[in-house]
Nucleic acid binder design. Structure first.
Length: 113
DNA sequence: GTAATGACCTTGG
DNA sequence: ACCAAGGCCATTA
């Protein structure tokens, strides 16, 4: 361990960066992909540190199981997240992604673990 | 060092 | 079907 306890965090960042444009995923999916489905909270916490990361992390493409933009308030502005998603051709209304299942990006299927 | 919180999810009543 | 509580891991006070 080279003084890098971001092991789990780095994993999350890697997966999030791999999310293609116009697609979204959930914390549980990432956690489950990493083998820690019970630790979905840590995934969300990792996103909190995403801003501290050197590389940009599309945290706006990560939402909860309900497809709700729970972490929009953690961005620079609470509107940036929805704006970004709309730019990705993703319809967002009432802080919730429409056709969420249609835009859902599953690492298990896409990354074929 | 202990206690409480958090961008969540699952299960029980 | 709806409401409530627990669990998991890490960070911060």
């Amino acid at each position: 361990m080279a003084t890098n306890n971001s092991d789990f965090f780095d994993q999350v960042f890697q997966v999030v960066r791999l999310i293609p444009k116009g697609r979204v995923t959930t914390y549980g999916a990432i956690a489950n992909y990493l083998g820690a489905k019970s630790s979905s909270r840590v995934v969300g916490y990792a996103m909190n540190a995403a801003h501290s990361q050197k590389d940009y992390v599309p945290a706006h493409r990560v939402v909860n199981r309900n497809g709700q933009l729970t972490g929009k308030h953690h961005f620079n502005t609470p509107f940036i997240m929805q704006e970004m998603l709309e730019k990705e051709k993703i319809n967002v209304e009432n802080d919730t992604i429409l056709n969420f299942k249609n835009h859902f990006w599953d690492p298990f299927i896409e990354l074929k673990l």
